[in-house]
Design a protein around this nucleic acid. Structure first.
Lengths: 184, 184
DNA sequence: CCCGGTTTGTAGTGGTCACTGCGAAACCAT
DNA sequence: ATGGTTTCGCAGTGACCACTACAAACCGGG
């Protein structure tokens, strides 16, 4: 019948715990209590904390793509249209723990803490290439618009996480209002 | 002749320590050792860790403006010109501990940890308004371009901190190359 | 030169952390 | 059922954290 806990059980619990309480609250002890087991069990499957974090970040990458896919699903001809398509995702991003967790991991990477410093750049690079792949419908000469849109979307995500919806809404409104009639 | 240490001494040391080693390494004990005193002295001036962090973040805000001022000093008529003016600052941002410290604080705020959750949004909002104030030379109807540029610059800063220069350079090159001849 | 408050050192407090030694229980093959 | 392996609980270990009790050193004003 197998044992009570598999590695996947614990990993899923770890990702859920991180989404609920943040990476800083993800400890062997707390995770074990959440799963109703001794922390020895967690350590058995993930011999070091870095092992656990590494796999949690992998899961976070998947969640990020799921969360952002709708933003790039609609084909868009230019910068402003891409932003408009992404808007529904951006607008609720501040309530999405996936983005909060991503920025927490990013902050730890910026602080130079391992294993984040090694792993987060791979995560971000993979995301950028994935996003670029989703917009292949864009003509080649519009690739610059796509690059600008991706950077802008990223900046607005940052505003929303760090400054709240007010600043982000203001910036987005100006971009959408100003660019609507101009270039097409 | 007064005492050996003033509050400003210790605060300056704390900001320097944070820039050197990150906020996560800023502890009473380590700061005291750096200053060559007992940790009791630090605690005397900053009764709680949050007091210390609050003032360090205030200092960080000033440093951020100093670091970013050259990016907005040149008047620019549109999105692409603004990005081009900001480029020298962006290009070296990954080696600037001020930006690393800012993203670390941002990550802690995204994780919901106090006092960052309360203080960082004020920091970012203040920065956005300050940046908007610097670009008053831009005609009113170009304000949307400015908003897009600020978000784009922010996104590129993020790329550089979290994904390294390669991804950021690629995105920026596309934006600058594609937009150079277009709108003016 | 002594008296008040201000500043600093010594030596802790209780808490949490990642991680471990060891033995027992659960499991599987035979 | 039995022997060996995998899984797990109990009870730690030492390190580090923010923060504190207490008393000594220091200072300017009288």
């Amino acid at each position: 019948m197998g044992y009570r806990h598999t590695k996947d059980d614990i990993l899923a619990g770890a990702l859920a715990a991180a989404l609920d309480d943040g990476l800083s609250q993800l400890t062997f002890g707390r995770l074990a209590k959440r799963l109703g087991v001794s922390d020895r069990v967690v350590v058995y499957y993930f011999p070091s904390k870095d092992d656990l974090i590494g796999e949690v970040l992998l899961g976070l990458g998947t969640q990020l793509q799921i969360a952002l896919a709708p933003a790039f699903a609609t084909p868009a001809a230019n910068h402003v249209e891409m932003l408009r398509a992404a808007w529904p995702v951006l607008a609720r991003s501040e309530h999405d723990p996936v983005f909060a967790l991503f920025f927490e991991a990013g902050g730890l990477a910026a602080a130079g803490r391992e294993p984040y410093r090694s792993l987060v750049p791979q995560l971000v690079t993979a995301w950028v290439e994935w996003a670029a792949g989703l917009i292949v419908g864009t003509p080649a000469r519009r690739r610059d618009e796509a690059a600008a849109a991706i950077a802008t979307i990223d900046g607005l995500l940052l505003f929303r996480q760090l400054a709240g919806s007010k600043a982000a809404d203001q910036a987005a409104r100006r971009i959408l209002a100003g660019g609507a009639s101009a270039r097409g």
